[in-house]
């Protein structure tokens, strides 16, 4: 479903992603793990078309991606951002935020779609005409997920979707994401610094360090501690240590 080959990204003279290649099968959830500055979010944003200045080859559903993305791409690929406080327009109601993708893509039947989208992410009807600042962090992230899914994409890019949330809310959002993934047969890429979160949602994952992928391994290998690269082993050890 998603192919990335020899991707390089430059920010000015900074070479932030170096020769990254991976494939994600349809219906699979793929994790990108690493510490800050490892380039994991940059890979995701580059796939999403939010970064210029890349070379290599990327394709989604067999279609190669150029420097500019067309509307069809954005109907197929959607993204959820890390900070639910920052990713919702502060002057727009939930209703307006959810209506925007429908207007852009000319999808009819906005009324029932918005109601359905709110139900799908378990937001009360009363939340519909509220502004983001009137919602809790978890509710905001649900709105962001509803927005991403309202135009029926097949690929969902998740950039640290729960790291700004409390653990109890994180559990709810992770459950919601796994339910939605099941129900809609979504292909996902999940970027996170938290190995446990990645292991919970993903079948396979890539470990990044200094802009490179150092290792790609399966969830089972991760849980079993069968990592070959020392950086992965360090991350696993640290994660176990923090779990106590």
């Amino acid at each position: 479903m998603i192919e990335v080959e020899h991707l390089n990204v430059h920010f000015g003279s900074n070479h932030v992603v170096r020769d990254v290649s991976f494939r994600v099968a349809a219906g699979e959830t793929f994790g990108l793990v690493g510490e800050s500055g490892s380039g994991k979010s940059t890979v995701l944003r580059t796939i999403a078309g939010l970064n210029a200045g890349w070379d290599g080859r990327m394709a989604v559903a067999g279609q190669a991606l150029g420097p500019r993305r067309d509307r069809a791409f954005f109907q197929r690929v959607q993204m959820v951002f890390q900070d639910p406080y920052g990713s919702l327009h502060p002057r727009q109601t939930v209703d307006r935020i959810l209506a925007e993708p429908l207007e852009v893509h000319g999808i009819p039947d906005a009324e029932s779609r918005i109601t359905r989208a709110l139900e799908e992410v378990a937001l009360p009807r009363t939340a519909r005409f509220r502004y983001p600042h009137q919602l809790s962090g978890g509710q905001r992230q649900r709105v962001a997920i509803a927005r991403a899914l309202i135009a029926d994409p097949s690929v969902l890019l998740l950039d640290e979707p729960t790291s700004a949330l409390d653990v109890s809310v994180q559990a709810e959002v992770l459950n919601l994401l796994s339910d939605l993934r099941e129900a809609r047969q979504l292909t996902c890429i999940l970027v996170s610094h938290n190995l446990a979160v990645v292991a919970h949602l993903c079948e396979r994952l890539a470990v990044m360090q200094g802009g490179r992928i150092v290792e790609i391994l399966s969830e089972a290998e991760l849980r079993a501690g069968q990592a070959r690269h020392s950086h992965t082993q360090d991350l696993i050890a640290l994660s176990h240590e923090l779990e106590g």
């Binding site: 109890s168 994180q170 559990a171 459950n175 796994s178 446990a196 979160v197 919970h200 779990e243």
Partner: peptide
């Protein structure tokens, strides 16, 4: 208990996380 329990874990695999 709920706070401790609802965190995803690397050592234990669970299909769903218990919520608080």
């Amino acid at each position: 208990r709920g706070l401790l329990d609802c965190m995803p874990s690397l050592s234990r695999k669970r299909a769903r996380l218990p919520t608080l």
